[in-house]
Amino acid sequence: MDDDKIIFYAGSANEIIEELEKIHPDNKSRINATPDNVDSGLAKLVLTLIELIRKLMEKQAMRRIEGNSLTDDQIENLGETLMKLENKMEELKKIFNLKDKDLTLNLGPLGDLL
C-alpha cells in the first residue's frame, strides 16, 4: 500500500504490514485437484467439511453445557466422543500431510470457511 493512502494510523508500521500481508489470498485455500494429486485435493475438501461439522458439534456441545441440560454421564460421553473425533482428525491430517491452516475453503467475498 502506498504511504499516501494511509490517512490516519497511530500504530507501528511493522504491525500493519504484517497483518495486511496475511490478507492477500493465496492458493492454499483453493482446491487444486489435478490428475496427479486428486487424492490429496479430495482429502483436503472432505477433511475441511468434516472439520466444519466437528466445530459445529463442539459449538453445540458448549451451548448445551452453558444451558446446564446435560447429565454427568452425558458429559462423560460427550467429552470422550469429541476427544476421539479430534484425535481421529489429527491422524487423518497426518496421513494426507495437511495442517490446520490447510483446512479451509475460500468463499470469495464471504471470506474463508473456517
Binding site: E58, K59, A61, M62, I65, E66, N68, L70, T71, D72, I75, E76, N77, L78, G79, E80, L82, M83
Partner: peptide, 22 residues
C-alpha cells in the same frame, strides 16, 4: 465453571479446556 464440568476426569478436563476457549 459450569457445575457439570467440575470433577477431575480426562473427559471433563478435555471439555473444560474447550469451554474455556469457547
Amino acid at each position: 465453571i459450569p457445575l457439570v464440568l467440575q470433577g477431575n476426569t480426562a473427559n471433563k478436563n478435555y471439555l473444560l479446556k474447550k469451554y474455556q476457549n469457547h
